[in-house]
Amino acid sequence: MLFRPDHAEPAIPVLRKLVRENPLGILTTAIRSDIAPFIQSSHIPFILDVKDEDSTEELGVLRGHIARQNPQSKVLIEAAKASKSSMPNVLEEEVLVLFTPPSHQHYVTPKFYTETKPVTGKVVPTWNYSAVQAYGRAKIYWDHKSDESIAFLSKQVADLSEHAETFVMGFTGKGDRQGSWKVSDAPERFIELLRTNIIGIEIQLDRLEGKFKMSQEMSLGDREGVVKGLASLGTETGTVVSGLVKERSDLKESKS
């Protein structure tokens, strides 16, 4: 991914926030195998753990799980078993998880560039979006009979459900909001059976990179045109991206 200085987001807490607000990431691996393609990707919801929330440098650890029947799972298990790493079940090669908020993506027509288009006409369409790329080495919890895997998967499923129920759905149990669904609401034996059909993925992050491509490369007049143009569409996504363009434009002006 291209990280232009005017688009790149250097603040790690901002990137962590984007991940937590958009936990459905795309796990991409490049592992040579006789049983599946070299490059594979799967949509997986993740939990991001950070020891010190006040830290401006800590990247954190991503926890997720994937269906055992997924072809990517089979390659991950194969690679974990064959790994020569000093740490058991840790892959030798890094993996990538991409997080892209769907509400942060929008087409930008040249018609919105009210400053440059009338004068030179030298404008083209583009897309505005934000994204975070998380890199690290993954530990695979593939043995559903081991105490380590059982503990990891039990915590992972419970934490992920709680995050989605409270943060995504808003089921906090406060005021007139209903309470969240919990894993303990389902029969224990049912959960045990489901747990045998997933594997756990724990990624110790060593790189966290992100960008907010929100028309910062354009002149102030053109940025204002994008803000007004997107807002005038009257759509939810248009309103959200309009606000982001305004926010990033103000940030750029404050630094100039």
Rank of each mutant, 00 (worst) to 15 (best):
I12A: 09
R16T: 04
V19C: 13
E21Q: 13
L24C: 05
A30H: 09
D34W: 03
P37I: 04
S41D: 10
I44W: 02
F46T: 00
G60P: 08
V61A: 08
L62Y: 07
G64R: 00
A67P: 00
R68D: 00
N70P: 04
E78F: 00
S83L: 05
M87P: 02
V90Y: 05
E92W: 06
E94C: 07
L96Q: 08
T100E: 15
Q105E: 12
V108R: 01
T114G: 01
N128W: 02
Y129D: 13
V132P: 09
Y135G: 13
G136V: 01
A138T: 05
Y141K: 00
S146T: 04
I150Q: 15
L153F: 06
K155S: 11
M169C: 10
T172S: 11
D176H: 09
Q178E: 13
D185Q: 11
A186K: 06
L194E: 11
R195M: 12
I201K: 00
E202L: 02
I203W: 02
G210N: 08
K211F: 06
S215I: 00
Q216G: 10
Q216W: 06
G221C: 10
E224N: 15
V226M: 10
G229W: 03
A231H: 02
A231W: 01
S232M: 12
G234H: 07
G234I: 01
E236Q: 14
T237M: 09
G243S: 14
S249C: 11
S254V: 03
